[in-house]
Simulated assay, not measured.
Amino acid sequence: MDNNEREMLIQLHWTIDQYENADYYRLGEVMSAKARDDRAVDPLQFVKGRRADNG
């Protein structure tokens, strides 16, 4: 069993059949998604947000 499969079985409580029948491209997208706070921010929106915070 490779490490990815092992992690899915343990962490997500998947069965072997669920792992083997998974859409691997979509699974890769989901697993590599960044949290909202870690995503890139448009510089102009960042500046506008900072101005609103300062009053």
Rank of each mutant, 00 (worst) to 15 (best):
M1S: 08
M1C: 02
N3K: 12
N3D: 11
N4M: 00
E5I: 02
E5V: 00
E7D: 11
E7W: 08
E7F: 03
M8Y: 00
M8N: 01
L9A: 02
I10Y: 01
I10S: 06
I10H: 03
Q11V: 03
L12H: 04
H13Q: 06
H13I: 01
H13R: 12
W14M: 03
W14D: 03
T15N: 00
T15D: 03
I16T: 02
I16E: 12
D17C: 00
D17G: 01
Q18G: 02
Q18E: 15
Y19S: 01
Y19R: 00
Y19M: 03
E20M: 12
E20S: 11
E20Q: 15
E20L: 15
N21P: 00
N21W: 05
N21Y: 05
N21E: 07
A22P: 03
A22V: 14
Y24H: 13
Y24F: 10
Y24T: 06
Y25E: 15
Y25D: 15
G28F: 12
G28D: 13
E29N: 13
E29Q: 14
M31L: 15
M31P: 04
M31A: 13
S32F: 14
S32Q: 11
A35Q: 13
A35W: 12
A35Y: 13
R36A: 14
D38G: 07
D38T: 10
R39W: 10
R39V: 09
A40Q: 10
A40I: 03
D42F: 07
D42R: 07
D42K: 10
D42C: 09
D42M: 07
Q45Y: 07
Q45M: 11
F46T: 04
V47P: 07
V47M: 06
K48G: 05
K48F: 07
K48L: 09
G49P: 00
G49T: 03
R50G: 01
R50Y: 11
R50N: 10
R51W: 09
A52D: 10
A52M: 05
D53N: 05
G55Q: 01
G55C: 01
